[in-house]
Design a protein around this nucleic acid. Structure first.
Lengths: 169, 169
DNA sequence: AAAACATAGTTGCAAACGTCCACTACTCGG
DNA sequence: CCGAGTAGTGGACGTTTGCAACTATGTTTT
């Protein structure tokens, strides 16, 4: 049917409707994700934790909860254990943290932050917070808080931070 | 400083605080993204448009705007042109759309949906909408609308589709 | 106490992207 | 006509991610 009349050049970024996606939350989450991730990477350039939510979250979690286990972090960042292993490998190589076998449970291990890791964590915290705030510059503080708390709800369910846990893989 | 009393095994998914990330919108965007993407992939399993926001958006855009150019779509989905080329390659191979050289501008091309593509688009629309709604099941309709429109604001700025409709190109 | 089952970490493999960069073809303004 | 900018393409890389299989260890059953 339609294929000739609509002059292609009239379809610009500014006037192209997104079809149903315009009202689909997941579309914005998915798209904004790539933008916000890119932006964050820039802000973190050179800091050994660029790329991926994983490193940052892991660093902060280990700093905050000495002895936390890889598998727990994996659940929180929604990755599988194998991905987690590599993450820890890298971070250990970079001297940000260390593994220590758990004394009670020999198959488990605990993660501990290094001095260098601690400093990096301290350095990163303000950057991460500010980045998020700056990125969503056209959102009021109130809206920002609201979004955060609403999304937190879904996140907690998915990650199993609520009642009991499902793995939501 | 929380640490000694906290034996490693007591740090569970349920009680591990996320440090500053707890109040960082971008953290939720980034993390939820991977969950929502996985979920969507499941719902779309087998449908030739699984994986990545790109295919779906492209399909719907081409269906909606016959003759739209790859570069325009690229801007909307926040990818670079080369990524777009491959996307179109695949979709053309799959018989979802076709390229046609633009008559006015020989360096450009227009994308047109195929019959198969049109059917797929029709099939996908409800799924995508429902998926988003279902995924964020613990959010009220009103909140969902609010989130969508707030995020849309940021998206539009990022993608450069603000204000005026036809910025002379 | 042995067997069966579950959990933590690990590794290999392979698919899927995204990014950077260079290159061609073409348009347009001056 | 020239120079600048744009559209599409292709190649090479480096990463990330997911799956499946495997080990070691812990827990539960019978």
């Amino acid at each position: 049917m339609t294929h000739e009349t609509t002059s292609a050049r009239s379809i610009t970024v500014a006037n192209a409707g997104l079809d149903v996606l315009e009202h689909v939350l997941s579309y914005y989450i998915r798209t904004l994700n790539i933008a916000v991730s890119r932006d964050l990477d820039d802000k973190l350039e050179g800091l050994e934790v660029a790329k991926g939510t994983g490193k940052i979250t892991t660093l902060l979690l280990v700093d905050r909860h000495p002895g936390i286990r890889p598998s727990v972090i994996a659940q929180l960042i929604l990755r599988d254990r194998s991905a987690m292993v590599r993450l820890v490998d890298h971070m250990e190589e970079d001297g940000l943290l260390t593994r220590k076998a758990d004394e009670q449970d020999n198959r488990a291990q605990g993660l501990f932050i290094s001095h260098k890791g601690k400093q990096l964590a301290a350095q990163i915290r303000p950057i991460v917070v500010k980045q998020s705030r700056d990125f969503f510059s056209d959102i009021t503080d109130q809206e920002h808080r609201m979004l955060t708390s609403i999304l937190e709800r879904t996140y907690r369910r998915i990650a199993g931070l609520n009642g009991n846990g499902e793995t939501g893989r």
